[in-house]
Design a protein around this nucleic acid. Structure first.
Lengths: 273, 273
DNA sequence: AAACATGGTTCGGCATTGCGCAACCAAATT
DNA sequence: AATTTGGTTGCGCAATGCCGAACCATGTTT
């Protein structure tokens, strides 16, 4: 078996259609730091020849996923990319069904509330309800944050089998974002234990100083935890006690209602307060 | 030049990388009506052999753009699709910069407000701020509506060169969604004239009975109209006069502010009221 | 329980596709 | 005018991805 060409992907990528993978990775180049790219830049970033880069941008442009400025020739993502993402998002039905409960939770607490799902060891925001700029980090739908240092992330991990958590967290370096960040896997597992007992989780300034939040799991009809809701508060304005005492009960109520809306059969569970 | 095989795409698709196009069209299969699909269904919809369908789903799954239910084997869009859409959306910067102004407009009017851009003859929602379920249609970010019968659509078209409008509207059948819908291109052009003079546009129940709305253009630094904001109201609760008198001034103010935030150099323009 | 049906997975062989390369343009810069 | 930079083509060949058909693994029918 002469390893003539590095076919890295563990070999199981025998079926991988490469051109598709390439094209998609090209779309990922665009972001906040590089909202538009020239053909040259694209080719360099991807490590492709100009010709190849041209064929891919051409294709994506034809299909509407890239726009090209006619004068500068630079490419920008086209609005059609939203068709990819959001036909899909709506297909989950999650956001739509959760929206009104998020609204209610926001009204009752006056704090920004979010909905997120787990993807590998990240959480991805899928909906939010907040006042303008209460949050320090700029969170938008689709944003990713590491799971291990966020309340929703911990909740989502807490309800996964231990084996899966091990697999997901393998390769994640638990960076100490703040002095409060939990950076030991063992400690994390103890927190998961606690979360499962309490039915919710709290993180205190682990990702960013001055922000703490509480999160609760959302169950679907099959009894899986598929998402988490949180309430996020500023440490300077709301104490942990207040978060726990005033906001958590509302949070749990909202989480339950969303779960029910998704068809979850509620089991009355004892919750340590 | 023997046209041996139908290479439909006007011939200029010589450079089209087919596998990419195919893979992307596969992702578009998923939507509200079909949130999950089996390999078989996918193969049928696409007109592919099972093997081909398998390789594409395999690829997309490996990359995280598709999830597969391990028991039923059915595919659903993976959360990673949001990376495609929203890395991009954020790269526009538009939504982020507009968010706080939308919030303000919503607070002042108490009505749902939206932000949309033009894509072909459609408008695509890129941001919104609304109470729960005031709207009858379920609008989410990424949703598409025809431009010709929406306030934002008309505004967006009104500021495009006539030639471009002709091109975009070619092939669009102006369906009479309600008795109020404007279905003549000529009439539409007269409205555009009016919109340019007034600096905003109103549609009265043209897409759906009971809903009317006012929209205003958003300009970028280069003097182009790149988006539109609207305020949408229920005909039963807010009269057209009230919409015009109470809400439009606020709408215009918000639109101006967003434009300025985008670097637009405000020219003081006379606006007919 | 055996036969059947359904739908997912795998393989081999070959036409097609898409790649690198290198030339060709078209603008901007010197 | 000469040079540079970056976008657009064309060619020939190797790798890619397609078809068809077999193989499996479950679930269903008789």
């Amino acid at each position: 078996m002469p390893n003539h060409v590095s076919d890295f992907e563990t070999g199981d990528s025998r079926y991988m259609v490469r051109s598709l993978a390439k094209g998609l990775s090209l779309l990922l180049c665009f972001g906040r730091e590089s909202p538009s790219l020239s053909l040259k830049e694209l080719a360099e970033r991807m490590g492709w020849s100009k010709g190849t880069a041209y064929r891919f941008t051409f294709t994506l442009q034809q299909l509407g996923y890239l726009d090209q400025d006619p004068t500068t020739k630079r490419y920008r993502p086209g609005v059609k990319v939203l068709d990819l993402g959001f036909g899909c998002l709506s297909s989950m039905g999650l956001t739509e069904r959760a929206q009104s409960y998020l609204e209610e939770l926001f009204q009752k607490t006056g704090q920004p509330v979010h909905l997120a799902v787990l993807d590998d060891a990240d959480i991805v925001y899928v909906a939010r309800r907040a006042d303008r700029s209460l949050t320090t980090i700029n969170l938008y739908v689709g944003a990713r944050l590491p799971a291990y240092c966020t309340s929703m992330g911990k909740v989502l991990l807490a309800y996964r089998p231990r084996e899966e958590v091990r697999r997901l967290m393998k390769g994640v370096t638990m960076r100490r974002h703040t002095p409060h960040t939990v950076t030991s896997l063992e400690r994390l597992h103890r927190e998961f234990e606690q979360i499962r007992r309490a039915g919710y989780g709290i993180t205190d300034q682990e990702l960013e100083l001055g922000v703490h939040s509480a999160a609760a799991p959302i169950w679907d009809a099959s009894g899986q935890v598929i998402a988490a809701v949180n309430v996020s508060t500023l440490a300077g304005r709301v104490s942990l006690e207040e978060l726990r005492g005033r906001f958590v009960p509302r949070l749990l109520e909202a989480a339950d209602r969303i779960s029910i809306a998704l068809g979850h059969v509620t089991r009355v569970e004892a919750r340590a307060v």
